[in-house]
Computed example of a mutant assay.
Amino acid sequence: MSQMFFRSRYWGVAARGIAMGAADVVPGVSGGTIAFITGIYQELLDSLSRIGPHTFAILVKDGIAAAWRQINGNFLLALFAGILTSIFSLAKLISFLLHNYPIVVWAFFFGLILASVVPIARRVSRWTWQCWGALILGVALAILVSEMRPTEITATPTTLFFSGALAICAMILPGISGSFILLMIGIYPQVIAAVHQFQLSALVWFAAGAGSGLLLFSRLLSWLMHRFPSVTLSFLVGILLGSLKIVWPWKLATSEMVGLDGDKLAPMMSNVLPAEFASASGHPSYFLGAVAAMMAAVILVLAVEWLSLRHVGNVVQEK
């Protein structure tokens, strides 16, 4: 097992996990998007869907090694090690960048999500009316999520559990951010504080909910991807397109909301053009820097797709 884990493939999987974790820290960017554009989305869904009661039966009958192989354990270990490493080590860096260079950071993620539409749409074999309907439904769902208004709930074991389940379902969908959902229901600050301060009890309840939601929702998504691949992919394309509204770089606060303890919650924001942002806020729009960040993200996604297709082609030739 250890020899398999330290093969170069799993270092690459861990690196993808680090990128997914960094994306998940940002309210508005989904780790599922990173998984898709780096070519591991289907394997992630399939591996998670193998975990269930039958895994325990294999463990009892054939031993740990057989159960580990059945769930693709090396892949999952490498991926989630990367995700957790990123969340605990990069959370402060991402927060710093968002605080000091918000427009450029959001522009990079805008380009990342926009370019991610290309590799997903290419996998739709034929655009039928069902596919177009699924795409419209995906756009509508993402826009509906973007229109949610910030609220606040108390962090109890029950709310942490269900918040974890809801966030992980959103996280695994390309385009919908789990951390954005947490922000909208008002528990994001408590979760981030629990991570920074290592509040073990809160983290355990949140992780239990996330694990439960992940196992159930990944099974559903895996089934949909195998049974209705084109329609499901079209739906994911729609979610990505609709989520662009969430990560638009230039925003102005329209109003503020007050939490249960009197503290101000995240203000309601509206998307504006760069010139309007500069005029209303009195701050520079950083238009050129934002465009450069968007282009860098687009080039990055297309380069990753090209390398992935080249790798698949080489594997096919070797066989």
Rank of each mutant, 00 (worst) to 15 (best):
P284I: 10
L240P: 08
G238H: 03
L215W: 09
G242R: 01
M295D: 02
L240G: 10
K251H: 03
E305D: 15
S243R: 11
I299Q: 06
L309S: 12
L241E: 00
A253C: 08
S234L: 09
L307R: 15
M269E: 07
S279E: 13
L244G: 01
L252H: 08
P274W: 08
W250S: 00
P284A: 11
A292W: 07
L260K: 06
L241V: 15
V247I: 15
G238Q: 02
F287S: 00
L300C: 14
P267W: 09
S281I: 02
L244W: 06
K245T: 04
L216V: 15
S285V: 02
W248I: 03
L236N: 09
S270R: 14
G289H: 00
P249E: 04
H226I: 08
V312A: 03
E305A: 03
V247Q: 12
S234M: 11
A297V: 06
R227E: 02
M269V: 11
I299C: 13
D263G: 10
S222H: 04
A278D: 03
S285R: 02
L288T: 14
M225Q: 00
E305I: 07
N271Q: 12
T232Q: 10
V258M: 11
L307H: 14
L240V: 13
L215K: 10
P249I: 00
S255Q: 13
W248Y: 05
L216T: 13
L260R: 08
G259H: 07
S218C: 14
S222L: 05
V298W: 04
P267E: 03
M294Y: 06
F277L: 01
S218E: 02
R219C: 09
L215N: 08
S308A: 01
L214S: 12
A293F: 08
L216E: 01
V298I: 11
M257I: 12
S255N: 11
A293P: 05
M257T: 02
V301T: 08
W223Y: 15
A296V: 01
G289R: 05
F228N: 09
W250I: 05
L260M: 01
L220E: 00
A303Y: 00
R310C: 08
S230C: 09
M269T: 09
L215I: 15
F287W: 01
L220M: 01
P274V: 10
Y286S: 11
E276D: 15
E256N: 14
F277H: 00
F217T: 04
G262N: 04
L260N: 02
W248F: 12
L221E: 07
G262H: 04
V298A: 07
S243Y: 11
A278Y: 01
V298Q: 00
L216K: 02
H226F: 05
H283E: 05
R219V: 10
S281E: 11
L244D: 03
R219W: 14
K245C: 08
L216H: 04
A296C: 03
